[in-house]
């Protein structure tokens, strides 16, 4: 089983549209959406949810005001400014201590040091993840709760479930839609993968972010290829990116032209290669060929 992760550094370069097109071209693969805090792949692949699971990424503190003695120890030990003081709620207390669930890091110090054992510290529900069926193979995806953290842990969970399915059902390819940036969820999506495809665009921002994300893949020793989306927006920069890709020791996998059909396909909620056979779909097919060859080599 080969695992390909599609990332970009910069957001909005076309990761999800390209992953969706690859899913369609591959025919049968396992799909995973690891961009858990802005997941969009399901809008193209229309998964039918088969199993839903709760995701508990960490614990969270909750002060039981009826036991609280207002000593303030929790506030003293918390380094995340997560303990707030409000007005009295009962006749026996001057103040009410409360945990701001958004600021709470889940370290548990307040609960550990509370002399009145007034703080509960239980697993917190951070989101849900799903195993689904699509026309292109099984899909694992998730929904992080509003203003929730622990996205890296959720990404790791999704990837391991997707791998398990690929092995059990003997499906050769695992296609992963990653998230922008170079931080926690991206690192969780790429560590140990067979190949990474970095989708960039010919803008100075795209190039800047490509260099940082390429440094990241090198840091974790993961072979990476580059695809340039909307290459004809700035041909000079496309040339420069091609040159720098070689210099960085990465494989130039292909170029995709700019086309408004990408947005039209998105509005119709179908992978672009099913929406049109025009040039852009040819570009994506060629890119897919090269990506498959590289993936099989790795």
């Amino acid at each position: 089983m080969k695992e390909l992760v599609i990332i970009s550094g910069k957001g909005g370069t076309g990761k999800t549209s390209i992953t969706g097109a690859f899913a369609s071209l591959a025919g049968n693969s396992v799909l995973a959406d690891c961009d858990v805090d802005a997941a969009d792949l399901h809008l193209l692949l229309k998964p039918r949810i088969i199993k839903k699971h709760d995701f508990y990424g960490g614990s969270r503190a909750l002060i039981r005001n009826e036991l609280c003695t207002d000593c303030g120890k929790c506030r003293e030990v918390c380094r995340f400014d997560a303990i707030e003081i409000r007005g009295p709620v009962s006749p026996h207390s001057q103040k009410t201590y409360q945990v701001d669930p958004v600021a709470c890091e889940g370290c548990g110090l307040c609960a550990y040091f509370c002399p009145a054992q007034a703080i509960q510290f239980d697993l917190a529900l951070n989101g849900e993840w799903y195993i689904s069926g699509t026309n292109y193979g099984p899909m694992v995806h998730a929904q992080l709760g509003m203003a929730e953290g622990n996205s890296g842990k959720l990404v790791s969970r999704i990837r391991s479930e997707a791998k398990k399915i690929a092995e059990e059902e003997k499906i050769g390819n695992l296609l992963i839609d990653g998230s922008p940036g170079i931080g926690c969820p991206v690192i969780a999506s790429i560590t140990g993968a067979d190949q990474v495809l970095i989708i960039t665009e010919p803008t100075l921002s795209g190039l800047h972010d490509l260099r940082r994300v390429a440094e990241l893949t090198r840091h974790f020793h993961i072979p990476a290829m580059v695809g340039i989306n909307k290459w004809d927006i700035n041909e000079e920069l496309t040339g420069e990116i091609t040159r720098q890709t070689k210099e960085l020791g990465l494989t130039m996998a292909g170029k995709i032209r700019y086309s408004r059909a990408v947005t039209e396909a998105q509005v119709k909620q179908v992978p672009i290669v099913e929406y049109t056979n025009d040039g852009i779909s040819q570009d994506i097919r060629e890119l897919w060929q090269v990506v498959m060859e590289e993936l099989n080599k790795s």
Binding site: G11, G12, T16, V36, D37, A38, D40, L43, V102, A103, L144, M146, A147, E148, G149, S151, S179, P180, G181, G183, C184, P185, T263, Q266, V267, Q269
Partner: peptide, 28 residues
């Protein structure tokens, strides 16, 4: 702010007086 809706964005917008959300008129 960074993209997304998770910890980094929350850290960036915490305590601001107003947030402008930029979007594009597509399903994504």
């Amino acid at each position: 702010a960074p993209p997304g809706t998770s910890c980094p964005v929350i850290e960036a917008v915490r305590g601001v007086d107003y947030t402008i959300l930029v979007t594009e008129p597509t399903p994504f």
